[in-house]
Design a protein around this nucleic acid. Structure first.
Length: 300
DNA sequence: AAGACGAAAGTGGTTGA
DNA sequence: TCAACAACTTTCGTCTT
């Protein structure tokens, strides 16, 4: 019998289990609830006959966080060449040489990049799934030669930004640019570039994606949070969210929620964690109030 | 005195010719 | 490539608590 797991950060009981990483990740705010759980990955039971053969797994699961995904390729083993004659032998040597050249340059680059990725990810509390995705994106970009002419860090940053958005744990460009200490514009540019080149489709972010994280940074009560969620859902129905910055909407909804629940935060406090200004909150919040007939804000 | 409010001018990014 | 445009920011003065 198992107690329901709760996120220490936002109190949510919804979570994702990231088997490869052995983490339980909060679905709402992305913080790690539990680490080092056992790998639930399928270890097929094998019965007699050949049914097990195709499913049998050897070695560690593939991971993109290791620079060689945990496995490397070599052309030809030590003994192989003795059995082959002259010109063929030369060809193999050439292939080997090229492979080692390409792979050392590329792999070394990727190795450094992934080290950087790990460093930043742990700093930003990036869930493992997103980190894995970022690693994959970087690898693809590097293999397509998209890193050339750009700083490695900016490509890592762009990959991470994209990965976080795809995994629904968006981090703001500000947060990422700060930890990488790279210009926001630069990251945005490379981010768009690699997405275009790799054909990565990024859905627009929604205010809801941000609410939980902002709320937990403000240490709001669950009641207030659900109020904010409710407000955002309503706002989306009335179509006052489209075309607006999702972070502004999230911030305003949170601000309104704090008023409604007597858990007052200043506009500045909310604005700071959301990375928008008070003015933006005011604008959004004005719209929220008159479009959603929330005129009775003062009285609770 | 601090916070909330609003007007006005400025900034960076997108879009469409 | 340029101009128009919307969202957002900065700044600053005024009102409210």
């Amino acid at each position: 019998m198992e107690a329901k797991k709760k996120c220490g950060n936002c109190g949510s009981t919804e979570y994702l289990i990231d088997r490869q990483a052995g983490e339980t990740v909060c679905k709402k705010c992305g913080s790690i609830i539990e680490e080092d759980i056992i790998d639930y990955g399928q270890e097929w039971r094998e019965f007699s006959g050949d049914s097990g053969q195709s499913k049998r797994r050897t070695g560690n699961p593939l991971t993109y966080i290791k620079h060689d995904k945990g496995v490397s390729t070599k052309i030809g083993g030590a003994g192989d060449l003795n059995r082959i004659g002259g010109s063929e032998k030369k060809r193999i040597y050439r292939l080997r040489k090229w492979q080692s050249r390409i792979s050392t340059a590329l792999e070394r680059n990727i190795k450094y990049a992934l080290a950087e990725l790990r460093r930043v990810s742990s700093f930003l509390n990036i869930p493992h799934v997103a980190m894995e995705e970022a690693a994959k994106i970087y690898r693809n970009a590097a293999e397509k030669g998209l890193v050339r002419g750009r700083s490695m860090e900016s490509v890592v940053a762009g990959a991470l930004y994209a990965a976080c958005r795809r995994q629904k744990f968006p981090r703001t460009l500000d947060e990422i640019s700060e930890t990488f200490s790279i210009d926001k514009k630069e990251i945005g540019k490379t981010y768009r570039f690699i997405c275009r080149e790799l054909g990565i489709r990024i859905l627009p972010t929604f205010p809801l994606d941000y609410v939980y994280r902002f709320a937990s940074e403000l240490k709001l009560s669950p009641k207030t949070i659900s109020k904010a969620v409710e407000i955002i859902n309503k706002a989306q129905d009335v179509e006052i969210t489209s075309g607006k910055g999702p972070m502004g909407v999230a911030a305003a909804a949170l601000y309104v929620a704090t008023l409604l629940c007597n858990e007052r935060k200043t506009q500045r406090e909310v604005a700071d964690v959301a990375g928008v200004t008070e003015v933006t909150i005011r604008n959004r919040y004005k719209e929220l109030i008159d479009k959603l007939k929330l005129g009775d804000v003062e009285k609770e």
